[in-house]
Design a protein around this nucleic acid. Structure first.
Lengths: 205, 205
DNA sequence: TAGATTGTTAATCGATTAACAATC
DNA sequence: TAGATTGTTAATCGATTAACAATC
């Protein structure tokens, strides 16, 4: 059995990948743990240690070939493919997500949008026709979708999460400002701008 | 000099506050570190330890009075007041943020919205008239705004961040999928849904 | 009182950093 | 070669957990 890699290491890899992609766009082809660390405010030792969990991607004396390292990180994170994502909730936030052009090229594509409002069902949002939440399980199973984004009001989030899990979802990106209770094998990530703002105010005089 | 409290402790307080507020809404008046921990998937010892940095908020045998603990946490996080927030970027995401009703009651209020597009300047979004980015420094200084949300394309984020900092902003909530380089005294928090999604795919077969 | 739960201490666990041999 | 940088080991640092006296 391969050793388990700390989650905190995994959580930094997308940050590395994002920075490397930007470096590549800016025409760089090589970088070093020192340069990358300086840009990200992370020590070079930490970057080398993190990467070393997955193999030796660099060369002594010269550093890392950026395109190669990008490929390797994408492979580790399993984003060298395109994941179909279900979006639940077609309010302001859901609509913004449906229009967002930043998912493709980074491993994700919204495949379907659900809402429970009769006024919205059947309407278009971006490239999608809004479907009723009742069809959620059917569509998710049909497309073998593994990931959902949850952009519904807090009071419905837990119930919808349970429907998603019953339909076979493995990971939920939860925009509702509420903690979800889910089985151990389900991954949940939270996006709550107020939590992030409150993490700053403590430090602001 | 009072001992510095670890940032990781501070970062959990908004989560506690959010869960306690929900408990209060559901009619609970008392809770325990055990109950709260179970809901959040955090050990009771950690919750007690975290809270103990700021004083003894509970009672042996009975636990914590929820309204009192909420008040104390709000005070610690400085959200027992209302912070005015500047929003830069009135695209899909910026508009969704401008309409979002979840800021008030949690310590924040959007006070102004900026964009650089002549097509948008002067238009309304939610309760706001979109102002030109050129007015940013003036308005921020006038209102003494300390916090900004950045919802502009990645290629403009660094430049706008620099303008915000020059105007006296202390904290930036950055929605652009790019790392910002800022002076040490500026707090930055990041919201990038793709980073969160990539943190899940590693674990999904 | 008896039962429950806090706040805190000490022990454990895990993550970060420093340092350097290997080597490009 | 000389200089630079990796990958890795050991040391340090910090966070979490276990345990329990205090006490409501």
């Amino acid at each position: 059995m391969p050793p388990t890699i700390p989650d905190i290491v995994i959580s930094r890899l997308p940050i590395y990948l994002r920075a490397l992609t930007r470096l590549a766009q800016d025409g760089h082809t090589v970088t070093s743990s020192h340069e990358l660390g300086q840009r990200l405010g992370i020590s070079s030792a930490q970057i080398r240690k993190d990467l070393s969990h997955f193999g030796g991607f660099g060369k002594q004396g010269t550093g890392y070939q950026i395109p190669y390292l990008i490929d390797q990180l994408k492979q580790v994170l399993k984003v060298n493919r395109e994941w179909e994502v279900a979006l639940v909730g077609a309010g302001d936030l859901g609509s913004a997500l449906a229009h967002y052009r930043g998912f493709v090229n980074r491993g994700f594509r919204i495949a379907c949008v659900f809402d429970n409002s009769p006024q919205k069902i059947g309407n278009r949002v971006g490239d999608f026709v809004i479907e009723p939440v009742e069809r959620l399980a059917e569509v998710i199973r049909e497309h073998d979708i593994k990931i959902a984004m949850l952009a519904v009001p807090a009071e419905h989030a837990q119930a919808v999460a349970e429907q998603l899990i019953a339909a076979g979802i493995h990971g939920i990106l939860n925009y509702a400002p509420i903690n979800l209770n889910v089985p151990d094998h389900i991954r949940v990530q939270y996006i709550d701008p107020v939590v992030q703002l409150q993490r700053m105010t403590y430090y602001i005089p």
